[in-house]
Nucleic acid binder design. Structure first.
Lengths: 223, 223
DNA sequence: CCTTATTTTGTACGACTGTTCAATCTAATA
DNA sequence: TATTAGATTGAACAGTCGTACAAAATAAGG
């Protein structure tokens, strides 16, 4: 599979307002359907129909299907990465970091967008879950998510100077997967537990869970 | 999507040895390709080619593609569920359960099969990851995995009588997703951490992580 | 306003999709 | 061994797939 994230090709004229709107509709539809059904589960024609455009337009704006997928994944990944780095830097100025604080800087930006940024951000978690599940997107995942992950691992490593970096990395990967599970499998948690109406403060629970896990994995001596 | 797990239809003659071998090859190929590329990413003809049979035979043995998928998922789910329940019951007779012990009974059976039971069990984790990522398989996932999950949640709930069942359920869902991440994203952990040659004892690390997470989530007072 | 880069439309293409089916072969049962 | 349920084969079906393309509509830049 492709590893390249498509770049804007050079143009001689600025795009019209209408054109930009259509582009946006196409990308949003693609994101929603890719998230719901995976890469080959969502056809170009499905995406076109959802965006209310003829099929040819999807190719025109998004390029080959693979490129469209990569772009849609990387688009929000970049925004998310920036938000996370910003949160981290802002927190750093308030004093020395704790593990809870680091994880909060990692989780909160996404969960915030998921709840206030509209349904697109919610479906984005499903999209990432598909990317993570499919080895064909390994390179795409590495490009989109590894740089930020490395930065956060560095911060955690500073708190546990004696710990193996591998263990810290594993902890963060587990944490990310737990966060994806929180968003994509809320129904599952609800089905397995007693129905509880309040949807608030899942974030606190998640951070508590992950922080304790990372803490324990990096202070316990392996058998 | 279908929710039904296909049953053996009634027959008047026992299947031949050759026929059983072909069936097995078809199911194994289907499992491997579904795991690698997802449901629509793996075509019936791909599966047939991998199993060295004509395409029509896949339909003959596996039924419609959906039924084949459901069967392939549920096949190992049943074996895995049995192994987990057995491990739990065996441990119960040794004395009162700890959280570590409960999680070990949940994780160890799979990781054991993944390392000794051949590559099929390894690819099965990917298959489950695809099922989890795609909301269209929600019912299938519920049928295959919820009964066992409920039993383990009950055991954990007995250790934390004051905790909300919802929190315990969330903890187990997080734990499962972490286990899937361990198997499907080992490369990612390796890429993010320093390369470390020993692949042993990831299980201990995982259990430590999840146990501490569940413990913390169920003893910390939510804000 | 005029020019023309760009967007939009509909059609068309060849490849592939899941599934069906009649014909043929194999082997379990009586 | 004879019978025939069942397995196997390959061809064929009607759709859908991703994509390319020419023609038409639109609107940015001069």
């Amino acid at each position: 599979m492709s590893i390249e994230i498509p770049k804007e090709k050079q143009r001689q004229r600025a795009p019209s307002k209408r054109s930009l709107e259509t582009r946006g509709r196409i990308f949003d539809s693609a994101e929603r359907l890719f998230a719901e059904r995976g890469f080959e589960g969502a056809s170009v024609r499905d995406i076109a129909k959802e965006a209310n455009v003829p099929a040819g337009l999807v190719t025109h704006h998004g390029g080959p299907k693979e490129a469209l997928f990569c772009y849609v994944v990387s688009r929000r990944a970049e925004e998310l990465a920036a938000a996370r780095i910003n949160a981290l830097n802002a927190r750093k100025e308030l004093g020395p970091l704790t593990l809870h604080a680091i994880l909060d800087c990692f989780f909160a930006p996404y969960l915030e967008k998921a709840e206030t940024g509209g349904p697109q951000w919610l479906s984005y978690a499903r999209l990432v879950a598909h990317v993570s599940a499919d080895p064909r997107w390994r390179d795409l995942a590495a490009i989109c998510f590894d740089p930020t992950a490395k930065i956060f691992i560095d911060e955690i490593a500073a708190l546990y100077p004696q710990a193996a970096r591998q263990t810290i990395a594993a902890g963060l990967v587990y944490s990310v997967s737990a966060m994806l599970a929180l968003v994509t499998s809320r129904w599952r948690v609800a089905a397995l537990g007693d129905p509880r109406p309040d949807a608030a403060s899942h974030l606190d629970e998640l951070i508590t869970f992950c922080a304790a896990g990372i803490e324990a994995a990096n202070t316990t001596r392996a058998s």
